[in-house]
Structures are given as structure tokens and as C-alpha cells.
Amino acid sequence: MAEVVRVLVVDDEALVRHALRAFLAADERVTLVGEASDGTEVVDVCRATSPDVVLMDIKMTNVGGVEATRHVLEWNPQCRVVALTTFTTEWRALEVLRAGACGYLVKNSTPTQIVDAIVAAHAGDRVVSPEVQERFVRAAIEAGESRATGDPTLSDRERQIIELIANGLSNAEIADVLHYAESTVKADIRHINHLWGVENRLQIVLRATELGLISL
């Protein structure tokens, strides 16, 4: 018989946790070992419950899902994190995947799809919701079509910002690392978008990869 996957649910909405608790209990492939209502609790609960997979919300008060994902993997690099969120934008997915998550699901997924993703993540696979995969593909195509000729000159700070974007950091986190105002970081990102003819973070990362500035 296949190993039962130990799951920790992290979500700041009690109703969501209740729904997840109900259908996880109905599937013999998984067992719910714990819950956390905020990213600040997640490592303590992980230590207490030793989950195989953490089902992680993205937008939470205090510590969000991207930062919480990093904390989980610092605690145990073998633990698998699957994001479960309402966001379908590709740059949100890129942020948490770059932080180390191995899956990205939207909350309109069916119970079976979510459990299938948990089991697949535990087996070492990467799972992304179809609508988010479609956005990745579209962004890649648009980045190729709008790519500027040559490599417009970037400042050292802009190159640092691109690397930090690729590592999944938010604007506020980038500002903190570089010791600049968040408004300065936003202005630099707008300048990068203008230079490269791109519109969002994912396209910045794809373009930087094409130019060999970073590697994914």
C-alpha cells in the first residue's frame, strides 16, 4: 500500500481550513497532521507535526506565503510546499516557485485535483494549475515578441534588482536588501520594463535569462 502523505495546512481563513480539513479526511492517500493560521506559526507547527507536504496560502497577515515557504525549507529542505491561492497571475506563481515551492494551485481546484497535487509533490513532481501554466506560456511568447534588439545598458542597481526579482523577493524586500526606498525600486523596475519592452516580473526574468544575466 502506498505511503500516506502527511499534510500541514497553512491558511489565515478558518473557513478554508475547515473545507480542506473535510476533504483531506475523506481521501485515504493523505492525512492532515496540523494547521497554521499565519506564516509566523508555520515552522513551530512543522517541528511539532513533521509534515511531508505543506499546503500554503500566499496572502496572509504578518508573514505571507512566500516568506513562510522559505522558512519551511530552511527547517527541512526535504519538505514539499504546494501553494494554494486565489491569485492566477504568473508573477505571483513565479515568486513562490522561486522561493522553493514545488506546486501552485488556485482555490477553484477540485478536492481531487488538490489531493492529486499533494501526492505528486510528495513523489517529487512539480504541479501548476492549468490556467497559471497558460499564463506562463503566454508571457514567454509575449516576451519573445516584444524583445528589444541588443542589450540596453542597465545600471548595477537594476541588475541587482533583476537578480532579487528572480529570487522571488517583493519590492519591499528588495528595498530592504538594497537599502533604498521602495519607491526607488518601483521606479527602477518601470525603467527596466521600458528598456526591455516588457510588462511584468515574469517577463523581466525570462528576458534576463535569455540575455544570460541570470539562470533559472
Rank of each mutant, 00 (worst) to 15 (best):
H122C: 14
T153D: 09
T112F: 12
A93H: 05
P77D: 08
S155D: 12
W75H: 13
S155Q: 11
G100W: 01
V127Q: 00
E145N: 12
A121T: 07
G144C: 10
A99K: 07
A123H: 05
A93P: 05
P111D: 14
S155T: 15
W91P: 06
A68D: 06
A143R: 11
T89V: 13
G103T: 02
A93V: 06
R92G: 03
A117W: 00
V96T: 03
L73K: 03
E145I: 11
V128Q: 07
Q133I: 15
H71L: 14
A68M: 10
E131I: 06
V132R: 04
S109D: 04
A148S: 07
E145R: 15
A148T: 12
G103H: 06
L97C: 03
R147L: 14
Q113F: 01
A99D: 07
R135I: 05
F87E: 08
L94F: 09
T86G: 12
S146R: 15
V127E: 02
D125N: 03
L94R: 13
D156Q: 10
T153L: 14
V132H: 05
E134I: 07
S109T: 07
T149L: 09
R126D: 09
V115Y: 12
G144V: 05
D125W: 12
E142W: 03
L73R: 00
T110W: 07
D151I: 02
A121C: 06
V106S: 02
E74M: 15
H122K: 10
P111Q: 14
C79R: 03
A121P: 09
A143E: 10
G144Y: 08
P130Y: 11
P130K: 08
L73H: 02
V81A: 00
V127T: 13
P152I: 10
S146E: 15
T112L: 14
E74G: 12
S109H: 01
S109M: 02
V82F: 11
R126S: 04
G124L: 04
I118G: 12
A83R: 03
V119M: 01
T149A: 12
I141T: 13
H122A: 13
C79N: 06
V82E: 06
T88F: 13
T112Y: 06
V82G: 05
I141Y: 09
F136M: 07
